[in-house]
Design a protein around this nucleic acid. Sequence first.
DNA 1: TTGCGATGTATCGCGCCGATACATCGCTGC
DNA 2: GCAGCGATGTATCGGCGCGATACATCGCAA
Lengths: 205, 205
Amino acid sequence: MLEFAILGLLHESPMHGYELRKELAAKLGSIRAAISYGTLYPTLRRLQSAGYITEADETPPTTAEVPVLTSKRGRVVYKITAEGKERFADLIAQAGPETYDDAGFGIHFAFFARTDQATRLRILEGRRRKVEERRESMRDVLARAGERLDAYTLELQRHGLDACEREVRWLEELIVNERSGRAPEPRSAGSGTAETSPHVQDERP
Amino acid sequence: MLEFAILGLLHESPMHGYELRKELAAKLGSIRAAISYGTLYPTLRRLQSAGYITEADETPPTTAEVPVLTSKRGRVVYKITAEGKERFADLIAQAGPETYDDAGFGIHFAFFARTDQATRLRILEGRRRKVEERRESMRDVLARAGERLDAYTLELQRHGLDACEREVRWLEELIVNERSGRAPEPRSAGSGTAETSPHVQDERP
DNA sequence: TTGCGATGTATCGCGCCGATACATCGCTGC
DNA sequence: GCAGCGATGTATCGGCGCGATACATCGCAA
């Protein structure tokens, strides 16, 4: 899953680890906490040895040869390879059941701008189905659990049920929009949100 | 974290693994998916060798000695020990920072009926603080990210921000109730939810 | 000049997950 | 009468991801 996110980010521009983590935190802030280094660096290694990313020597060597003696060992910038782009596309296309849990869905959604409309629709509907199942199961618990559960547990279920219902409604909206070919409407999110046009689909480097 | 949940459940009555999983799914349905057996059984083992739980031979031996030859190896029922209850109380009292993330908070909340009021308040406030921080960080992203992020990512942030704001309001309500000494008000959750009175605090076996 | 916070790379132990295997029990259908 | 199927039930394995920790450099403020 993190593999997917990293490939997605490097798809936009080369980056080093620290930067990657910050961008990820910004892009996925609503889904998950910042990625741990204990995950990030091993994953980068794995991606590199799989050939999906390579080290890009940072400084364009023309500027100056000044700092030769300090061995530096500074930041390591990675960039995505052709195989990496292919892999990313595969991961989008496959979209198994793990794509519909909280984390998986969020990450896939965050890269919808690089996902074709049919797949977007498929993922949104899969997610909706999953959240609906969750909702039904919680309704059941709330219905037959008058005695069995204490007041706090019930309150927790109620709050969770509410969140599920909200998410389903949100997904419905997105699905309707998607079917009609529009990108998510800009809506009020500040004052002058720029015209982020659909701009879907930009494969090929 | 799962250690805490298992101890909490066994605190109520002895159970075998499968049952434990189902009860957990019902009690924590709003928080997390059902616990995996790959977690459950090793955890039970760990708890047992730490002395927090023991095997309880299921059948009261008086009923019948009929099935002797079939070696059976059927369900293994566990029950909590005195050390286990102590451990559970410790885990409630400590309530470190991991108590405030999504999973940790949910699990602790689910056992609020066994938690004293002061600790309940402390946990609710810690959680609120954490969600508020998350909310602020997402507001920042939304404010300065007109250009940097695409429409889908923005939509994701908006949905996440909304969820944060709701949770903060929910927590505020709970905190007010808690301060005034009331349990969460029954509210509309069916037709005749029975009088689940506060009934907080039942230590001592 | 000392010290601190941001930037930056890296490892280690371990909790937890999903897949998988396997065995028993009771039901329904042929 | 027995075949198959879904529920109940215990268990292991590989691997992802986390939190803690270590360490090194840079710029700035006290």
